[in-house]
Design a protein around this nucleic acid. Structure first.
Lengths: 211, 211, 211, 211
DNA sequence: TATGAATGAGCCTTCATTCAT
DNA sequence: GATGAATGAAGGCTCATTCAT
């Protein structure tokens, strides 16, 4: 059947594309954007230089693709099973996030807290969506400025903590870090209430305090 | 003594140096490191291209210089008058910091939370020193890992909050932001206690809760 | 005989070839040779990139094909019916040529007076043949250098005039342009006589002056 | 005197610039625009690759510069001394032009009748100014469309003739070519009258017919 | 000290062409 | 015949840095 031939070819092409993407991800996570040469990526992927552009249009296009791939992976870590009590849900998400970063030290070190050099609106969107999911999990209205502020505040602090944790010579155990994150989250919520006194964060805080 | 009485030439040279430094600071704060060309700086300073290298050795050297200048300015903002109660001292430092960032939006937007592209050990030192002073102010031992962790955690969150505050279309008033910072700081301290249960943060927290 | 009865496949192939040729013609006439990419042509024709090379060997081969097609079309415009008096015959040819260019503005603007970038011997031949036919029409011996010179001279001027006419915001009417062409042709003939005094151009000129 | 030093340096720089310009001119006149590499020019000029861009910004900038230089040279050839009778003035200009082209065969072959690949408004201006001067010489109003048309018509034909003359294995003598040009010019003027019957070209033609 | 011309390594990108399917 | 993924050579341009003056 001739119709299977194109499929096989398409599959091969997609596979090549993935090879390039994987090589790019590794290199981009290991060095600064400008220090990664398109030629390096091609060489690492074992393909011709021009193929990078055939599949991704430009070095930046490829970079964005890498970013989005990671963003999607991270988003998928969230636990939002409503059956599980809030405190456990959040802790589980945190633990998953930490585990991911531990498994992807390069991502943790080169992406988190280091906004990608070429401004990437798509990546910002993914990040934003992460905050949105956190708020949904907490039962807070993301549209309220104070809530959004707290989410960003907290996420930043959490990234910093994760980084420190991962680079520490004498790292804490994961559970401890998760508890620290919860403490910081509670602080961020109290800060939110300061900005928006009508915000009722007490139930959330109480729920978070229960492991 | 000729060494204490700079000749006119030396004075002029120093002035030229400052011109370059000022131009560099403005440009570096306005764009990413790689997007600022040595030639741009020279042009903005109204001097010859080569002079940049004459005075600062290299583009990176100049960048470090800019970073240190800013770091020193920020460090000078801390209020550590022991006569003043802790809560007020911290709030005063925060307010001063926020005022500084409001006056130097470019610094707030392009330095804070955006670690300088070329690794800058000196700048890290300055940053570290800021954390150290904060801890001294709080009466906590910076040498304890958990304390250090909390300081970094908090500083990062504070930076994020300041950024959001400055870029917001509808900014909160300064006092509110200061209170939010205090709330976050308390959260960070609680997190520190989680990591290091022997740490007695309660007195500090109580002191912070008094305006 | 299978050779005279092209199979369906062959017919389809020929049709595809034409599609590519038509797309190429349009693009080549709309932009400079180097600005037309083989990929553009394939896309415009709705065929695979590689097909261009399958049918025409190379981009240049395709270009030559386009050129020859146009050359043949232009050659076919000449009126050389010996029954018609010279003045009318020439005017008729001119009018036909002008009409063709008006119908193919792209050809007029991008080919005429703009020798094809890649040296095209074949196109030069076609051009030459046009001059030859003009001379035959005029009853002049194309082999005489002065005649050939005059023909080229005239053809160039005529092209320029046609271009100007077509791009003018306020174009003259066709008959006027035709008369101008005749005037220029007469000038060229007089120039030919200057170069070759033995050339008897007076009868031709007299014939041309009769509408 | 320190003030002479910069002068000397400037002179040296200008000389280098000229070296590059000269090399570029030679190469551009010898090949098509795209076939001349910036690196070739630098090599031919004996300077670093980057210097081309230091002085001319881009390959195109350099090309334009070459074009303008030639345009200025050609413009300077016109003889418009009102003391000299028209016929002689025109013939003298033509002869000068032909001599120039003979001395600059590369220009004649690669510029004349071959509009520069990258559209060059400046060069068009120079060309236009040439036509303007011709008309002023002839005492005709360049603002009249028919006059402008005739000027362009004639210039094009003259370029063609000059080309043929220069590439001919058995070239005519210069005087003959000049007379041919005059004949063509008269033809163009008659064509102009066809387009604009109010135009009184007879006195000009009579003046041209006197050597 | 100051100038700015000169250097040259290096990079992204383009694109005609090939070829396995 | 048709496809389009893959190739790879080549080129324009940038820019930190040097250096003669």
């Amino acid at each position: 059947m001739p119709s299977t031939t194109p499929t096989r070819r398409q599959a091969a092409a997609a596979q090549t594309r993935e090879k390039v993407l994987a090589a790019a991800r590794e290199l981009f996570m290991a060095s600064a954007y400008e220090d990664v040469k398109a030629a390096d990526i091609a060489r690492a992927a074992g393909v011709a230089h021009g193929l990078v552009f055939h599949h991704f249009g430009s070095k930046q296009g490829l970079y964005q693709e890498v970013l989005c791939q990671i963003g999607r992976e991270v988003l998928a870590l969230h636990c939002d099973d409503p059956e599980i009590p809030l405190g456990r849900r959040i802790r589980r998400s945190h633990a998953a996030h930490l585990a991911y970063l531990a498994d992807h030290r390069d991502v943790a070190l080169h992406l988190v807290l280091r906004p990608p050099a070429p401004e990437s609106e798509e990546f910002d969107d993914v990040r934003d969506q992460g905050h949105r999911e956190l708020c949904r999990n907490l039962g807070l209205d993301f549209e309220r400025p104070a809530v959004r502020l707290a989410a960003r505040l907290y996420a930043t602090a959490a990234d910093q903590l994760a980084r420190d944790h991962l680079t520490s010579a004498d790292p804490l155990d994961t559970d401890t870090v998760v508890e620290m994150l919860v403490a910081v989250l509670i602080g961020a919520l109290r800060a939110a209430r300061t900005a928006d006194p009508e915000l009722d964060v007490d139930p959330v805080i109480r729920a978070l305090e229960l492991p």
